[in-house]
Amino acid sequence: MHIVVCIKQVPDSAQIRVHPVTNTIMRQGVPTIINPYDLFSLEEALRLRDAFGGKVTVLTMGPPMAEDSLRKALGIGADDAVLLTDRFFAGSDTLATSFALATAIQKIMETEPVDMVFAGKQTIDGDTAQVGPGICCRLGMQQLTYVQKVESVDPAKREIVVHRRSEGGVQVLKTSLPCMITMLEGTNQIRYGTMDDMFRAARADVRVWSAAAAGIEDMTRCGLRGSPTVVKKVFAPKARAQKARPVDGEGAEALAAAAIEAIFASQPKLESDLLKQSAGY
């Protein structure tokens, strides 16, 4: 079983600051991490490899320093890593990103067939959840998003059964390999790599591919030029003109009474609605 896991290096958003004057993101010095959602997919891929044999290849597109994320993934237990890096990729939207990643996966398939592709449910920076479906669609694979459990895999029959979260319930789906899976968060816990993995990760050869090396011929499909979406404007949310009005009163009871008066004064219909809703108390 050969599984490709797409991971994205993202800024640790807990530490992102917005410049108070220019309203731009201050990226300097912000540490980067593997997109947290990708770790659930990586772990699931590693479990399948452990159960059925084969290998896990991690793939990322990004600047040269994105190699750090690949080494981290190797340290956790991935077997092989490919870094897609080229100035042609700068400014890619999701369409251009999925084009580059899908082309690279096809390149990988030339030497080793791929049975499954895993991607994260979404990222914490771009947060579109569009790249996984984009890759899948380009590769003509079966698409399994928001998976909360891989129920069974039959490598001989090339079949897989998963539980997929949908509105109002869980779909139990059976499909054929190859397929693309995005895992739901909280479905498993990423492992700690073994000592062996850590040593191997430090020494491993990460394959570094330019656009041309990945088999991309038409550079106009990459980066800004290959991106139909254009970011026109970035701005901070505007503050409301008025601040919250504090209610007056001494002690909790008086404050509560004053708040209730103020609530019903500003929302006259609310009281009758509440009476209907809370009937029974």
Partner: peptide, 23 residues
């Protein structure tokens, strides 16, 4: 932008090769 909408929009936009703004 539901689970269904996001699953569908991504493949439709890719098939049509057009832009998709999320959420």
């Amino acid at each position: 932008a539901t689970t269904l909408g996001r699953d569908l929009a991504g493949s439709v936009a890719t098939t049509l090769a057009t832009g998709l703004t999320a959420d």
